[in-house]
């Protein structure tokens, strides 16, 4: 797992403390009862601060899983992959 993925895992862990590190890569907004609008806003704020990126609010609804965030960050910062 890359350093960027580890940091992303840590971001998810801070917002979803009930999930284990093994569960986080499989998390999806639709499949988890714990992922609500508040989590979305908090997660976006944490990730923006942690990775120093500005997430376009138009894109935010599409970032509905760990994998989606991982892909998004790779696209924003390919060198880190």
């Amino acid at each position: 797992m890359s350093e960027q993925e580890n940091r992303l895992l840590s971001c998810f862990a801070s917002v979803f403390p009930g999930l284990s590190m093994e569960e986080i890569p499989g998390i999806r907004a639709q499949s988890q009862g714990i992922w609500d609008s508040l989590s979305t806003v908090t997660l976006a704020a944490v990730i923006q601060e942690e990775f120093n990126v500005e997430i376009d609010p138009e894109i935010l609804p599409q970032l509905d899983s760990f994998e989606a965030f991982r892909t998004y960050l790779c696209r924003m910062n390919p060198a880190a992959e």
Binding site: S14, T42, V46, E49, E50
Partner: peptide, 11 residues
């Protein structure tokens, strides 16, 4: 302190 650290502290 970053938000992520604050969240970890809260939890």
């Amino acid at each position: 302190v970053k938000l992520i650290d604050a969240l970890h502290l809260v939890r």
